[in-house]
Amino acid sequence: MNDRQGSDREPEPKVDAMAIVGTLLAGPLCWGGIGWLADWLTDRATPLFLPIGILLGLGGSIYLVWRRLPKH
């Protein structure tokens, strides 16, 4: 029999700050790069797909970080 209190609960998962920062940076960079490539391939004078890609990448990376965080 274990006398320590709280030993029946599972340990809380740790949050890796570098993984969060990396995810938040990688999404806009990757999707922004895809948007830039789409602008370059379509020979646009003003960028259209670049800001769309950056916003989609940021939204996706925020969603991924939110899903990975432990629930309390």
Rank of each mutant, 00 (worst) to 15 (best):
N2C: 13
N2K: 06
N2S: 11
N2P: 15
D3W: 12
R4I: 13
Q5L: 08
Q5M: 15
G6P: 02
G6F: 03
G6L: 04
S7V: 10
S7N: 07
S7Y: 14
D8A: 08
E10W: 09
E10S: 07
E10L: 14
E10M: 07
P11Y: 05
P11K: 06
P11I: 05
P11E: 08
P13V: 03
P13N: 11
K14E: 08
K14I: 12
K14Q: 09
V15W: 06
V15C: 05
D16Q: 09
D16S: 15
A17H: 15
M18F: 12
M18I: 07
A19W: 10
A19N: 13
I20M: 07
I20P: 03
I20F: 10
I20W: 03
I20C: 13
V21N: 15
V21D: 05
V21M: 09
G22V: 02
G22K: 04
T23L: 06
T23P: 03
L24E: 05
L25Y: 05
L25R: 00
L25T: 07
L25C: 06
A26P: 01
A26C: 10
A26H: 04
A26T: 07
P28V: 02
P28S: 03
L29M: 14
L29H: 04
L29S: 11
L29W: 14
C30Q: 09
C30F: 09
W31C: 10
W31T: 10
G32Y: 03
G32H: 01
G33S: 09
G33L: 08
G33Y: 06
I34K: 00
G35Q: 02
G35F: 00
G35K: 01
G35E: 04
W36D: 14
W36Q: 15
W36M: 12
A38E: 06
A38P: 01
D39P: 01
W40M: 09
W40N: 10
L41D: 06
L41H: 10
L41M: 12
D43M: 13
R44L: 13
A45M: 15
A45S: 14
A45F: 10
A45W: 08
A45H: 12
A45G: 15
P47S: 15
P47Y: 11
L48P: 00
L48M: 14
L48W: 08
L48K: 09
L50P: 00
I52C: 02
I52A: 07
I52T: 04
G53W: 00
I54Q: 00
I54E: 00
L56E: 01
L56V: 08
G57L: 00
L58V: 07
L58F: 09
G59H: 01
G60P: 01
G60C: 05
S61C: 02
I62S: 03
Y63D: 10
L64C: 11
L64E: 11
V65C: 02
V65A: 02
V65Y: 00
W66M: 07
W66R: 13
R67E: 08
R68D: 10
P70G: 05
P70D: 01
K71C: 06
K71G: 07
H72K: 08
H72G: 14
H72D: 09
H72Y: 14
